[in-house]
Amino acid sequence: MSDAIIGGQDRIAKRFAKLKEEGRAGLVTFITAGDPDPETSFEILKQLPDAGADIIELGMPFTDPMADGPAIQEASIRALDAGMHMRKTLSIVRGFRDEDHETPIILMGYYNPIYIYGVAEFLEDARNAGVDGLIVVDLPPEEDPELCIPTVEKGLSFIRLTTPTSDDKRLPKLVQNTSGFVYYVSVAGVTGAGSASNEQITEAMGRLRRHTDLPIAVGFGIKTAEQAADVAKQADAAVVGSAIVSKIAESLDENGKATDKTASMVTGLVSELANGVRNARK
C-alpha cells in the first residue's frame, strides 16, 4: 500500500497528535477546488502547507450552496464557470498527494454531486486520490446510511458539523458515526457571516467536550490572525474559509481571471493566520 492510500483517519489522527506534541492548535484552510480556475487552484493548494495550513478543506463546487454566504457562493460559480467538475477535483487531490503525504485533505460540499457520481464509486476514487475525510453540509445524522456509514466503512472520516443549535440532547446523535475531528460552526448562519465571542466559544467547547474526545475545530466568521489566535487558545484547530476565498476574488483582474498575485495573496493571508494560530498559546 502506497502512502497515497493510507486510510484517511490515520492522516488526520497523526496530524492532531503532532499538533498536540507541539502544544498548539492547527490551522484549517478552505479553498474551493477550481477557483478561480483549475490550474491556479492546484497551484494554491500545493503552496498551502508551506504557508502554514495544517489541514486543508477543499470545496467541491455546487450550483446551490445554500449554507454558504456570498464569498463561497461566488467561489463555486467561478470554479464551475472555469469548467470544474468532480473528477477534476479528485485529480487535483491526486496531484497534491503525489508530493504531500502528510497534510490531511477534507472534501467539503453538498450531497448531490456525490450522489450523482455514485456513492461507492466516489468513495473508491476519493480514497485512491488521497482524500482523508468528507464534510457534507446537507447530510445530518438522520441520513447517515446515505454516505456517512459507507464513508467510515471505507476508512475515511466523516466529519460532522455541530452548531449553536446542537444541544446536549442533540450532540450524542451528532458525534455518533463521526471521526477525524468535530467541526464546530460557531455561529448560526452562513459561511463568512459574523463571528462568535470568546465566551460563546468557551461555553460551546465545554458542551462538546462532554460528548466527544475527538479534536474540535472551530470555524465561521474568522477573518484575521487575531481572531484565529483567539479561537486557537481554546480549540484544537481554527478553520478559515471565506476570508481566504475573498483574497482570491480580490486578486483577480477585471475579467475575473487569475493574476500573478493570486497565489501570493492567498499564501500571504494564510501565513498571517498561521502565525496567529501558532503563537496563540505562547
Binding site: E143, L161, T163, T165, V185, G189
Partner: peptide
Amino acid sequence: PDGHFGNFGGRFVAETLMPL
C-alpha cells in the same frame, strides 16, 4: 416516520436547521 415517500423525500438540511 423519516419523511420518505419510497426513495424520495428525507431531511437533507444543514445541521443548524435540524433541531428546528
